[in-house]
Amino acid sequence: MTAPFTLGGHEFASRLMLGTGKFSAAAVMLNAVKASGAQLVTVALRRINRERRDDDILGPLAELPGITLVPNTSGAMNAKEAFKAALLGRELSRSPFVKLEIHPNPHHLLPDPIETYEAARLLVKEGFIVLPYMQADPVLAKRLADIGCAAVMPLGAAIGSGRGLATLEMLKYILRESTVPVIVDAGLRAPSEAAAALELGCDAVLVNSAIAAAGDPVAMARAFASAVRAGREAREAGLMAARDAAAPTSPLTSFLQS
């Protein structure tokens, strides 16, 4: 059993968060969520369909036991839109969490730091538990934590790109100084990358495309769950220090007088 993970005062056993877009069918998505053991599940407000049940992803998820919904503001281009979307998301999901996602470029979906900061400030004031999707920018991470975000969610690589921990060096800076949980969001392709993120000290990871676009999404959800658990166990067990060279058996400094 690894240590639980606390987010905005709520405790979670699972350190794997799941995104729910991109699945080939709602049933596949639900089975993947179940197989992953994820407790925090994000839902894009733009995919919540209040009119048509067979096109809705919120309803079926809300019925799963042990799931905390995290509406996301994907589609928002600026702080104002994200704020409105978050309010609507809270009304529909009754969740105190919001995954703040502002990507003004609809093609690469990279986050806007300026609008994200502004929206985070407004949403924290409004009482949300704010989880901002952000560039792996160590300074921005501090700034977002300073204004009350419950975690930071730096990207490993662009959404859907499957490029893994492309931002590794910047993630290390973020981890060294963060006072809030660090959740790697976006870019992961393989469970080994999720394990690496946890070993590194990240508190959790969020995965969507890597599971939804896998050959067998349910099996891949299970694989990610195992990897996240293994990565966290390794972190808690304490990895041995890595060395570039073998440790000398005859110390070079034995001539020094004490």
Binding site: F23, S24, A25, A26, L45, R46, R47, I48, N49, E51, R52, D55, D56, G75, A76, M77, E81, K84, A85, L88
Partner: peptide, 17 residues
């Protein structure tokens, strides 16, 4: 579409935007 393993998506936007 479903037989091909593709999910038809009706709502992918929201009037809030």
């Amino acid at each position: 579409l479903e037989a091909k393993g593709l999910q038809p998506v009706f709502k992918n936007w929201d009037a809030v935007y």
